[in-house]
Design a protein around this nucleic acid. Structure first.
Lengths: 200, 200
DNA sequence: ACTATTTCTTGATGTAGTTCATTGGAAGGA
DNA sequence: TCCTTCCAATGAACTACATCAAGAAATAGT
């Protein structure tokens, strides 16, 4: 019974990999063994500042956020991770250093987790996963670079528009405070932006 | 004679790879065959907006910049690449899409280039390079994420201080206009910041 | 169903960073 | 060498966004 449920929750991940680079039966089996499902409740920490990030997370359903709290106590969101997205503090994960970031759940969230050691096992047993994760990293890098460029070259209004275009599925799922923390503006200013947009 | 020169210029790259993950003689040989040295003069384009980015570049000496020009005509620098750094528009390179970015030389610059096809050859012949480039991507991602966080959470002054800490070797090599374009502020404002810092 | 907490809105005022214009100095090309 | 082009500095006016404060609306917990 328990196993059946786990098998089921693993499906989205296997489909995800298989689309990137087709997997053999054995490789699928290996994924099933090395990734573990885990449920986080809303507001629960997945990773807390100061701890080592020892798990890589693939979101099956729900939504996580990764963020930093600055000296003034303000929250800055690095990334949202909803269905079929990954989240991990790569710096901490690979560098074996305490994380400066937090990850927590904005909704009740089901993830598939792989530990550092198991990921190394995965790489060692089937180098195909080196390639898969290289491609994953490349895609993430492109996305981050795009956001970086937006941030240094656009106004808050443009960035909000891009957010709407890019994350339409999250728009009505997230409180505006979280969207503001992602855009790098205050909730008050976001409210004014929205107000202005409605009028015109 | 020509070959000797090429062999010599390839050394820094082989050392670079070897430090990340030790290479066999054959792998070193393969690198020597697939990477080609090329010289760019100051102001020469390495990649021009609208073109396909078909080469990955490793800087042996000199300095390149990767940047975007926005609708208002302002330049925004994504990255400087000096000795032992890589530069490539990954989105264009892997997505086979015209680039929205430019790369040009801030100084006379020697690079080692590998074409897309040759990189695929490299991956195919020795999957170890999948791993090497996965690790490379991970490191780049961490750096970019750090900068992203700085940008959404810090003042221009803090970012300038971080630039000094991180890129001290470039500080006196680059005109302030370029540093300002990297920090995401106007040259005038950078000038004022510097002036203020000198006084205190 | 009630209360506590979080979220959104709006106003008044403050500030980091921009824009435009001008000047002087440094560097680079024939 | 002159001449052009690029680069840094500084003033004055302007704008995008922040801060603080306070009330209204929506959500969540019991």
């Amino acid at each position: 019974m328990r196993e059946e449920l786990e098998q089921k929750s693993l499906e989205p991940l296997i489909v995800y990999f298989d689309k990137l680079i087709p997997l053999t039966k054995e490789e699928k089996q290996l994924v099933s063994e090395l990734f573990k499902p885990r449920l986080y409740r809303k507001r629960q920490y997945v990773l807390q500042e100061g701890d080592l990030c020892n798990q890589m997370n693939f979101v099956v359903r729900g939504c996580l956020r990764m963020y930093k709290i600055d000296e003034k106590g303000n929250t800055h969101i690095v990334q949202f991770a909803s269905e079929n997205w990954w989240t991990v503090d790569i710096g901490s994960f690979h560098g074996k250093k305490p994380s400066e970031l937090n990850i927590d759940a904005l909704e009740d969230t089901m993830v598939l987790q792989i530990s550092y050691d198991n990921l190394i096992t995965l790489y060692t047993k089937t180098p195909k996963f080196d390639r898969i994760f290289r491609v994953l990293m490349e895609n993430s890098y492109v996305g981050l670079q795009k956001r970086m460029l937006q941030n240094i070259s656009s106004t808050a209004e443009d960035r909000y528009q891009l957010f709407i275009d890019t994350y339409s599925h999250l728009l009505n799922r997230l409180p505006q405070t979280q969207i503001a923390a992602f855009l790098g503006i205050t909730p008050e200013f976001l409210s004014r932006l929205r107000n202005k947009r409605v009028k015109s």
